[in-house]
Amino acid sequence: MKTNQIILLVVGIVVISAVAYMFTAAESPEAYVEKIEKERERQFKYLRFNVESPLTEDQKRNLQTLTFYEINPEYKIKARLISIENKKVRQVPMTDGSTERYIEHSYAEFELGGKTNKLLLLQSVSESDMRNFFLAFADETSGRETYGGGRYLNVRQDGKNSITIDFNLAYNPYCAYNPDYACPLPPKENLLTIAIEAGEKNYDK
């Protein structure tokens, strides 16, 4: 066999192997649903049993379940990451009137609800992993089906110019369960004019 034929054969094997890996490594719909369900179960157990839970002892005893929207893969979004060149520290208002310091790091831009949306990604001034971000948002469900003070997501950069936002993992801040806690309010940039029918719903006291 000639050298160029050997090279072509090797290249072909590599390409086929790569394609096969992509298909086998891709998460199946069933595996995705199971992953979200496990995270929701973990969240419930934390609130119900953990000593650091924001729930009072009475609330813990009475907590039977948390309420969520049905898992919808369409709310798992691959967003464009738009870096903010001149990053500033923002004093983010809290529910008790105080403020907390976060770095204005980037914007996540994506299409959803028939329009282009953009969310501000904040980073704690004490964050050690520069790929981790805090996302607080409100949407058209806020104050109705979901907590009026907005919901949170912990997101992580997974590409050079991209980030995955999975609204199925949106969760309530501590103050949704117990008003004695102070929680960051969503910045004005993150008040969406679409309904995010995914993630955690209102806490039923």
Rank of each mutant, 00 (worst) to 15 (best):
N117C: 11
R48Q: 11
S106K: 14
E109L: 02
L55I: 02
F49W: 12
V33Q: 12
K118T: 10
E30R: 10
N62R: 05
E52A: 14
I36K: 02
A108E: 09
T95Q: 06
S128D: 07
E74P: 00
P184M: 10
H105L: 03
K35Y: 03
P54T: 04
K87I: 13
A18Y: 09
C175V: 09
F23Q: 13
T193W: 02
K87V: 14
F23T: 07
R131P: 00
D204C: 04
I82M: 10
G97N: 06
E127W: 12
T146V: 12
A25H: 14
E145I: 12
P29N: 08
V10G: 01
Q91P: 00
T56Q: 09
F68S: 08
K201N: 03
I103G: 03
A198P: 08
I165A: 07
I194H: 10
S162L: 02
G150K: 07
L153S: 06
G97I: 02
D139M: 14
Y152P: 01
I163S: 05
Y147G: 15
L121H: 02
K60C: 08
Q91N: 14
I82E: 13
Y171M: 15
E200N: 06
G12T: 11
A176P: 07
Q43N: 13
L119R: 01
F137P: 00
K188M: 08
P93E: 03
Y171G: 15
D204K: 14
T141C: 05
Q91Y: 07
V19S: 05
A108F: 04
L185C: 02
V51Q: 14
Q43C: 01
I77D: 00
E145F: 00
P179E: 05
V10A: 09
T116G: 03
F133I: 01
L122E: 10
F44L: 07
Y203P: 11
E140R: 13
L8N: 08
V89C: 07
A170V: 14
E52G: 10
T116N: 12
Y177T: 12
E41P: 00
L120A: 06
L63T: 02
N50C: 05
S28F: 00
D139W: 14
A79Y: 01
D180M: 12
S83Q: 12
N50P: 03
S83F: 08
T146F: 11
M130E: 05
Q64G: 08
I84Q: 07
N172S: 09
Y32F: 11
L191M: 08
A26N: 13
E30Q: 14
K38E: 05
R48V: 09
K2F: 11
E197I: 08
E104F: 05
L112Y: 13
I165M: 05
E189F: 05
D139K: 15
S126P: 01
E27M: 11
I77H: 01
G113I: 05
L169F: 03
I36G: 01
T3Y: 12
M94L: 15
N4G: 00
Y203K: 08
S17Q: 02
K78Q: 06
S98Q: 13
T95W: 06
Y177E: 06
I194Q: 08
Y46P: 00
L192I: 09
T65Y: 06
A108I: 00
E197T: 15
T116V: 11
